[in-house]
């Protein structure tokens, strides 16, 4: 069991189903800003968020979902998870946030200390996914212990800087799925099972 704590309960309230609210920039932005603020406080740092980059990531994410959404309803749950991976890809293509100062409260050698921005975006995607999955499928989200292994984060950062699609695979791995590392951001290429 990973030591990382997700914060699905910390997301802003909404009268709409989360799967709908998350596709509205007003809620997505409020959720991201709240998450970044709380994560910054937890790590002893502060995150500056670029509104335009965040909106650009959000609109690219909408495009990606629209493009890849399967017609087959039986794949709905699998695509739900994949949508979180696509969100991760778009956030890492052009990071909408920047840590100001060292994360003084992050444990030395931890993922949060190693790459605060990547850590913050990852936990945001996982938290939104966990909350939406609980609401939609009444299921808990389990995080793979790989999240505590700094070697995965080294690989994640190094590969993502070269090719942001890698981050989609990283998120699927953290959700316990086997990504297709050749095309980690293509739903049709995802291994079935």
């Amino acid at each position: 069991m990973s030591k990382v704590r997700l914060t699905p309960d910390g997301l802003p309230p909404t009268n709409e189903p989360l799967r709908v609210a998350v596709r509205r920039l007003r809620w997505f932005k409020a959720a991201f800003l709240k998450h970044a603020e709380e994560m910054g406080a937890e790590l002893g740092s502060r995150f500056e968020v670029d509104d335009t980059k965040l909106a650009a990531a959000f609109t690219r994410w909408l495009d990606a979902i629209e493009l890849q959404r399967p017609a087959d309803k039986s794949q709905r749950r699998a695509f739900f998870e994949f949508a979180a991976a696509l969100m991760m890809r778009e956030l890492t293509v052009d990071m909408p946030l920047k840590a100001v100062g060292e994360p003084s409260r992050a444990q030395t050698g931890s993922a949060a200390a190693f790459w605060p921005e990547g850590y913050c975006c990852t936990l945001f995607c996982l938290s939104v996914h966990a909350a939406a999955t609980a609401q939609e499928f009444h299921a808990d989200t389990t995080i793979d212990p790989a999240i505590d292994d700094l070697r995965h984060w080294w690989s994640f950062k190094e590969n993502t800087i070269r090719d942001a699609s890698f981050s989609a695979g990283f998120l699927q791995m953290l959700l316990g799925s086997q990504p297709n590392w050749v095309m980690p951001d293509v739903f049709r290429a995802k291994p079935r099972g």
Binding site: L25, R26, A30, D51, T52, L54, A56, F58, T59
Partner: peptide, 17 residues
């Protein structure tokens, strides 16, 4: 209550695109 946030979001989308 959402009016201001929605206008801001519309401006952010317009700027991003």
């Amino acid at each position: 209550s959402e009016n201001e946030a929605v206008l801001e979001a519309a401006a952010d989308i317009a700027l991003a695109r």
